[in-house]
Simulated assay, not measured.
Amino acid sequence: MSEQALRLEGITKAYNPGKPNEVQVLRGVDLTLAPGEVVALVAPSGAGKSTLLHIAGLLDTPDAGTVQIGGADMTGQSDRRRTLTRRNDVGFVYQFHHLLPEFTALENIVLPQLANGTARRAAEERARGLLDKVGIAVRADHRPAALSGGEQQRVAFCRALANAPRLLLADEPTGNLDPATSDQVFAALMELVRDTGLAALIATHNLDLAARMDRQLRLETGRLSTT
């Protein structure tokens, strides 16, 4: 993966454009992420970090600007092309784990692989390997309700990486956890990212965690700056 994992150029986004209550959320954001790079996105509440992550992950479209993933320009692509790129090349982690409650930890990681055409045996092997890397292989057959908050989020990390994406986008991935658990879970996430060599953009309010990443960017008044 020699090309940039993510490149944003001139990204703008406004809500209620042209109306008295228009809110300009992003004002010409430029951002590049290289393979293997972990970047912290720090922003006050309401600054637009979730909007930026959604645009980077092809869940939303900018009013202007371009989004490139793995060197491919996604501007103006069909919904099908965007969906396929999102499925194959992007992993998402949120503050809440969003695991399917009726399935085990293992099954939650296997399912996105099956949807992507992976054979069940290979999918299960990859799922077990990912769970082992984050230290909860023994919990593979437990459903989410039987897991602790930290364990649930580790499973969510594994699910996000199930299809070997080139880009991971995380929105406050440790925000619901106590400080000690947050530190442990973040360490597990960093190990996964470093092992796989993918690029990661991680939004967080935790400045201690942000300082452990390769770069820290701050989003404020619609623009990015280096902290």
Rank of each mutant, 00 (worst) to 15 (best):
L26H: 07
K19G: 12
E151F: 04
L41K: 03
L209Q: 15
T83Q: 13
A211R: 15
N206E: 13
A188M: 13
Q113N: 06
R126Y: 06
Q4G: 13
F186G: 02
T85Y: 09
R27D: 00
Q24Y: 04
K49L: 03
T118G: 01
R87T: 12
P112H: 07
T118H: 04
A127R: 07
V42Q: 09
A210C: 01
G91M: 12
A200M: 10
E125G: 12
V93C: 06
L169D: 06
Q153R: 01
Y15Q: 02
E102L: 09
V23G: 12
E124Y: 02
H142N: 13
E102Q: 14
I202Q: 04
D171K: 04
P62Y: 07
G46L: 01
P112S: 06
T196L: 15
L177K: 08
F186L: 14
L219K: 08
D73W: 13
E191V: 13
L33K: 04
R154E: 11
R143T: 10
L168R: 11
R159D: 05
G135Y: 02
L161T: 05
L167Y: 05
R194G: 10
V23R: 14
P17S: 02
F103M: 13
S78Q: 09
P144N: 04
E220A: 15
V29H: 09
L33R: 05
A5L: 10
F157D: 01
S225V: 12
V67R: 10
C158K: 07
D178M: 14
V185H: 06
S45W: 07
A203I: 02
S50V: 08
L53H: 01
R126E: 05
K19N: 00
E22R: 04
L224K: 12
G70H: 00
H142S: 14
P17I: 04
T204Y: 07
L169H: 05
K13T: 05
R7G: 02
T227A: 14
Q153V: 02
L33Y: 08
T83N: 13
